[in-house]
């Protein structure tokens, strides 16, 4: 690692001020950023640790019924604390391993937007709102391709609001070495329609599979998806799986997610 200073502000306001410094970068749980720093793929002058900010952790239900999760809340805390939204709790419980879940955070995962990460699928399928120190961003506008989001430099994800679907499930086909999703599908049946979000598969990062949504709006059953397939074009093609394989697995995982949600 290159040398840097580490600051530990206690409030969002202080963190935002600290992030205004030249070459400053936020540190969430560090489960992605610390390995990146070790590879010298990032060279911040100051790391602003968000883990001491009490106002950014915790889970509560809002008046409109949505689940508000602080951006600094760990995957482990969501796994046990999001019981009103079992699909999301299940997603969090399946990330990495216990030690990763004890440190990694919702805000860090969404800010990073790894094309194989789980939370982007959960946020997009839920129709979540990503709340920052500056504004509220709907999930449909937030994800902008591989490792790219609507976040501006120095913007902090302070909270994520997840509308709670009537039924939901996340099915992840694990890449066994990394434990990330080779393909992960989150299916959420809301009062106003079904949303299907796919991670791990596309070269453009997380996406909604609209044909599957339309079929599931007609009938929320795995059979409704019979015959539906995605083109291999635009899917990730790497040593872990070809593009055609990922397209196929996406359809299989979508069916399994619907079955699990029913």
């Amino acid at each position: 690692m290159y040398a840097f200073d580490l600051e530990r502000p206690a409030t969002v306001a202080d963190a935002v001020t600290a992030l205004g410094a030249d070459e400053a970068q936020a540190l969430g749980g560090g489960q992605t950023l610390i390995p990146t720093l070790k590879q010298r793929l990032a060279s911040p002058s100051v790391l602003v640790s968000l883990s001491g900010i009490a106002e950014m952790t915790g889970i509560c239900t809002r008046d409109d019924g949505s689940l508000a999760i602080g951006g600094g809340t760990t995957h482990a805390a969501v796994a046990v604390g999001a019981d009103v939204f079992p699909g999301l709790a299940g997603l969090a419980a399946g990330i990495g391993d216990p030690a990763v879940r004890n440190r990694g955070t919702v805000g860090g995962s969404l800010a990073n937007n790894d094309p194989s990460a789980c939370y982007p699928a959960g946020a997009l399928a839920s129709g979540a709102t990503i709340v920052t120190n500056a504004r509220e961003i709907p999930a449909d506008d937030y994800f902008q391709g591989l490792f790219t989001t609507a976040l501006e430099e120095g913007e902090v994800v302070t909270e994520v609001r997840f509308p709670v679907p009537e039924a939901s499930a996340y099915m992840k086909f694990e890449q066994p070495a990394s434990r990330f999703a080779l393909v992960g599908v989150f299916v959420a049946k809301h009062a106003d329609g079904v949303r299907v979000a796919v991670t791990g598969a596309s070269e453009n990062g997380v996406f909604r599979w609209s044909e599957a949504e339309a079929a599931l709006n007609d009938s929320f059953t795995a059979d409704a998806l019979n015959g539906l397939s995605l083109p291999a074009e635009g899917m990730i093609n790497d040593l872990h799986g070809s593009d055609a394989y990922r397209a196929h697995i996406t359809a299989v995982m979508t069916k399994r997610a619907v079955t699990a949600a029913c």
Partner: peptide, 26 residues
């Protein structure tokens, strides 16, 4: 040293963490 193997696991405030993936100052 890449967060994969768990040989560095310790408990911090009762929680299992990989001590190679957390800073001392934290």
């Amino acid at each position: 040293d890449t967060s994969q193997c768990g040989a560095c696991s310790v408990h911090v405030d009762g929680k299992l963490v990989k001590s190679c993936t957390m800073f001392a100052a934290e």
